[in-house]
Design a protein around this nucleic acid. Structure first.
Lengths: 324, 324
DNA sequence: AGTCGTTACGATGCCCGTAAGGATA
DNA sequence: TATCCTTACGGGCATCGTAACGACT
């Protein structure tokens, strides 16, 4: 058994059982991978991948167990490398953040600016995607951190730490009827066509919940994955924008009116997630604390030591989180 | 980084930093190990072992972290092999039990007999040693199970499950004054010379506690690591034997009188311990359940999923354990 | 017909073991 | 002086990449 063989079976799984694609991604030859997998299977005396003819059709039951263990092994080899790098070059390294448009555009810039100032030798990579893609990237080790409001909880291998609460604002053109109302009700809002996020993005589920609870079917005429697109269509008069408050920029959005709507919806919580088994570099702790000041290194370590997400949630349930 | 390199650094640590000894144990050449370690250090850019001249003097701080991770990696490779073996040859395998004389001689035989009947193809290895040696053997992966009353708690990587409670009996020659007493008190016992276990063996600590609490200094004239030796000296009239009740065999020890002493000492609990990270074969679950019927497979799995020993203790604190 | 995994083969390079060297206790 | 790690060197073997083959969609 060799580390490379374990690496191969994991990567083949992540490439939809396509060995040729895997070979490309790993910059090696396809027969090499095939042979190593075959040798591992021979050594263990079983099939990890089931073949139908000359195609890998699916992963066997034992194969899944083995690949699971292989992933843990590989992530620990990464930890060894990280420990070594931390010791030899504490200021150098990589930081890969997978996040949504909302975070990348509105909350992360003011965190990243001081970070690259402080750690010029850390090369920063940002991946943007849907909450599901982001979570998967973190779970598979492609990203160090996933920052999102949704979907993170679907991956059990991730530690999720709450960063801040936020709520929504309504965005309308000047002169819109709602701009005159003192405190908008959910019923009033339900009478206008709405422009908001698509399902599974940026706390969209809380919007649906609020309307469901009020037994109102909202007239959602347009959905987008990011606030900039929503604003564009609000400017076109398509409807009332319902978006995260931090996406409203008073200086730039002078042609639009923001109406507080925090009383209409339950607050959402943005979380940062990472694999439990990873070794966090010092600069990673610094990044987390820069993003969410209450997540000091010791608090994060405390949370990482916990196995169950419920324990982690309990740890932070007493704390006052920032609200944006 | 290769698995073999990780194996080498772990083994060198377990051999007191003596590379030559390590090479013998691993049936390979000494320069081979030296070179691989050196190559790993070069790859990581740091020293795992500090050298003074041409001797390995100690493990560096980073080295300890890395070796710790290496051990976890290696134990997971063992898990992969175990998963494979379980799938291909469910009835075959090894079972190595490290235990004390007391368990090996008096409690294990009636468990092992049916076990080898049930699993004739599992080759069984028993290692006998002091509680500390036993625990270390399990912690290092040399033994699958450690069964003992003492010292197990010193190793944090071990999961410990309580098997049964037991207490002590006094053993005297017929006609001894204590044989006439109705219910022996600790004061009465303190007046006679005692023969019992040495420190750190078979619940010896509870004996000391009882005398300490009574503010009595017992006259311990002879200590041994096993009950057979204790009995021998009781037969010679050296003193009153204080030993685990299960070590008194009515059929064989007809020339001695056993006096219940459970009311004098706090009960001890014999535990079975194994590394949290190991994959347990089906026959291993069967062995555990054979030894302690309340430790069903599901209960064991439940306990293994817990990270903290306190949680495990809590799990079993509600249960009625067998008493020998 | 195209995609894909397996087999075959030759060359590179790694790893092991023996032998000799130098440092320490 | 004995033990012990390091360096040097040669043989063997595993691995990799190219090329050809066979099978499934």
């Amino acid at each position: 058994m060799k580390l490379q063989q374990l690496h191969y079976i994991v990567e083949v799984l992540h490439n939809n059982l396509n060995v040729s694609k895997t070979a490309e991604h790993l910059y090696t030859s396809q027969p090499g991978i095939s042979k190593q997998i075959r040798m591992l299977e021979d050594e263990l005396g079983l099939e990890i991948f089931a073949r139908s003819g000359k195609h890998l059709s699916h992963v066997t039951a034992v194969g899944e167990q083995i690949i699971g263990l292989a992933q843990e092994i590989l992530s620990k080899t990464q930890a060894i490398k990280a420990v070594a790098a931390e010791h030899t070059h504490p200021q150098q390294g990589n930081l890969t953040i997978a996040t949504t448009h909302t975070q990348a555009r509105y909350t992360l810039p003011k965190v990243i600016a001081p970070f690259i100032q402080r750690y010029p030798e850390v090369s920063l990579h940002m991946h943007q995607g849907s909450p599901t893609q982001i979570s998967e990237a973190a779970a598979q080790g492609q990203a160090d951190f996933a920052i999102a409001t949704e979907a993170l909880h679907l991956y059990q291998s991730l530690v999720m730490l709450p960063c801040y609460h936020w709520n929504r604002s309504l965005l309308v053109q000047p002169g819109h009827p709602l701009a005159q109302v003192n405190k908008v009700t959910i019923e009033e809002l339900g009478q206008f066509p709405l422009v908001t996020y698509v399902h599974g993005f940026t706390g969209r589920s809380e919007l649906d919940n609020a309307f469901n609870n009020a037994k109102i079917t909202p007239k959602i005429v347009f959905t987008a994955t990011d606030a900039d697109v929503i604003k564009t269509y609000v400017r076109m008069g398509l409807g009332v924008g319902v978006l995260a408050s931090m996406a409203y920029e008073p200086e730039k959005d002078t042609d639009l009116v923001a109406i507080p709507a925090g009383h209409l919806f339950a607050a959402s919580t943005t979380k940062i997630g990472f694999r439990r088994s990873t070794f966090l570099r010092a600069y990673m702790y610094d990044f987390i604390e820069g993003f969410a000041p209450h997540l000091s290194r010791s608090k994060v370590e405390q949370a990482m030591a916990m196995q169950r997400q419920e324990d982690i949630d309990a740890l932070f349930s007493h704390m006052q989180l920032p609200t944006l």
